[in-house]
Computed example of a mutant assay.
Amino acid sequence: MRELGISEEAVEEVLFVAKRMDDKGLVNSFAGNISTKRDGKIYITPTGQNKGMLTPEKIAVINEDGERIWGMKETSEIIMHSMAYDICEENGWDVGGVVHSHSKVLTAFSMACRDIETEALPEMMGNFHKIPCAPYGAPGTKYILTMAEPYLAEGYRIVLLGNHGSLAVGKTVEDAMNIVEASEAIAEQILITNYILGGEKKLDALEVARFYEIYKENRAKRVK
């Protein structure tokens, strides 16, 4: 690995996140993928493999020319991951990890093509503002992320992909994982409140505006 310039640390980071997300039911053998970018190389989960049973030699490493130099065949969503890094870099966002998840509640919202938003939960407003849903784009093609590009360019850390789960970006792949975990929990709370309990009790307009300003401050801190 070292003679190829491959970072063992980066491989271990992907393995750790893959195992944790599998344990939490956020990915499975056929859905979801995880990557980190280090020194121009993308370390990404392989296609069709159980995320909880991956080993170092299975993690695909893709060089700057798009060639696999290590591991098993990479997921077909490598296009989406590569585009996510490029979009964020071009817009000044410090991103070193990408997680594509098919978690239950986030995916349900994506299948309904609905944004996730609330004016009743401070943690949602201050950390995410909202989780927008981009129109459908065919999986395994550039179009899946073309539709989401405006949101990533604007600085959203997670976006729903119409009919196809979610995509989160973070300073590290662990950061991206944490965003997915938090978003899934929030999405479940909003689902229960609005569709089972009959609706949320919104905060007053001044509080909503205050948390939106907090969100903008948090977003500004992520610029390189």
Rank of each mutant, 00 (worst) to 15 (best):
L4N: 13
L4T: 08
S7T: 07
E8M: 13
E9A: 12
V11W: 01
E12T: 10
E13P: 05
L15C: 10
F16A: 14
D23C: 03
G25D: 07
V27A: 04
N28Y: 05
I34D: 00
K37T: 01
R38K: 14
D39K: 10
G40P: 03
P46N: 09
Q49H: 12
K51N: 09
T55H: 06
T55W: 04
E57P: 07
E57H: 14
I59Q: 02
V61Y: 01
V61P: 03
E64G: 02
D65Y: 11
R68W: 02
R68Q: 13
I78Y: 10
M83V: 05
Y85K: 00
D86N: 15
I87L: 13
I87S: 06
D94S: 04
G96H: 00
H100R: 08
S101C: 06
S103I: 03
K104A: 13
T107N: 09
S110Y: 08
M111G: 08
R114C: 15
R114I: 12
R114S: 15
D115L: 13
D115K: 11
E119L: 06
L121E: 00
M125G: 03
G126N: 12
C133P: 04
A138E: 03
P139K: 02
T146G: 06
Y151T: 01
A153R: 15
A153K: 15
N163A: 08
N163D: 07
V180F: 07
V180R: 04
E181P: 02
S183L: 01
E184L: 08
E184S: 11
A187I: 14
E188Q: 13
L191C: 09
Y195C: 08
I196T: 09
G199N: 11
E200V: 04
K202N: 13
L203D: 05
D204N: 15
D204W: 14
E207I: 11
K216F: 15
R219F: 13
R222Q: 12
K224W: 10
